[in-house]
Nucleic acid binder design. Structure first.
Length: 274
DNA sequence: CATTACCTGCAA
DNA sequence: TTGCAGGTAATG
């Protein structure tokens, strides 16, 4: 489900609720939701920890804990992190329940069971992040790193941008939207880009993500923030899932093809293949 | 590169 | 019944 803007929305909603809270008990209802360590050890090490902060790296949400531990959560397609007050009604597809002192809960629910939780020490975190590219919303360093990677990589832009090693946090929605904003065809090959086009792509990625965060994320099918609210960015999508509808810039019908196995939406006129 | 596997639910 | 869905690791 969520890409960078959705994870960032969850982070912002969740942080004030869980900051400083101590974990009283943990219940794992679907063991494979725990990537590492094995579920019994996961429960033992997480119980008694206090949450000191909430961060994000790419699509990973990071709950910082005392004892130098971090609970990293990747929601994949349908995962949700829901903060629920004590005694709240059950949620469907509950996989992991984290109960705080006082009875409030953080619930990990996941219809398709692709999402994963990782309880890691600092070196484990380094390993997890080793293959992540730059943070698109970070300042100058991220820009240079991204432009450098684009200069050396070859092949179609769409699979390149879906690869988290190129830039961290993009998924299908925001790759489609970013390429439209940049006026670049999804099958355009990276090695044919001009420096001006590379810069345009970088700027388009940032504008697309920042707008989506400002709208609280995109709720097409299943995304909910930590407090259970939907995002509004689905009302602002320019091309994603809009096949046959007029391009917002020129009126040409939006096309749909499959690239990298994913539905790919673009304007044939605004995003020509040279 | 593309395809498959991991899973479930919904719409066509 | 088939195809599709916002992800990614493994495989060809």
């Amino acid at each position: 489900m969520p890409e960078l803007p959705e994870v960032e929305t969850i982070r912002r909603d969740l942080a004030p609720q869980v900051q400083g809270r101590r974990v009283a008990s943990v219940e794992v209802l679907w063991e494979r939701s725990i990537a590492v360590p094995p579920a019994p050890e996961f429960v033992g090490r997480l119980t008694g920890r206090t949450i000191t902060g909430v961060d994000r790296r790419g699509k990973f949400l990071l709950l910082r804990l005392d004892q130098n531990e971090t609970l990293a959560v990747h929601l994949r397609m349908t995962g949700r992190l829901l903060y629920r007050p004590a005694g709240a009604a059950p949620d469907p597809h509950l996989r992991v329940r984290i109960v705080f002192e006082g009875g409030d809960e953080l619930r990990f629910t996941d219809q398709r069971k692709f999402g994963r939780l990782y309880l890691l020490d600092p070196s484990g975190l380094d390993t997890l992040f080793a293959r992540l590219g730059p943070e698109p919303l970070d300042a100058a360093a991220g820009r240079e790193q991204f432009l450098a990677l684009l200069r050396q990589r070859r092949g179609a832009l769409k699979p390149l941008l879906l690869n988290q090693a190129t830039i961290a946090g993009l998924g299908n929605i925001y790759v489609n939207e970013s390429l439209f904003r940049a006026g670049l065809h999804p099958l355009r090959r990276a090695e044919t880009l001009t420096e001006e086009e590379r810069a345009r792509l970088y700027n388009a990625v940032r504008e697309t993500l920042q707008a989506a965060i400002a709208h609280g994320g995109t709720s097409i099918a299943t995304f909910l923030s930590a407090l259970g609210s939907s995002g509004r960015n689905q009302d602002y999508l320019l091309v994603h899932q809009r096949a046959g509808q007029p391009c917002p810039r020129c009126g040409t019908p939006i096309a749909r093809i499959v690239v990298a196995g994913r539905g790919t939406f673009f304007c044939p006129r605004c995003q020509p293949l040279p």
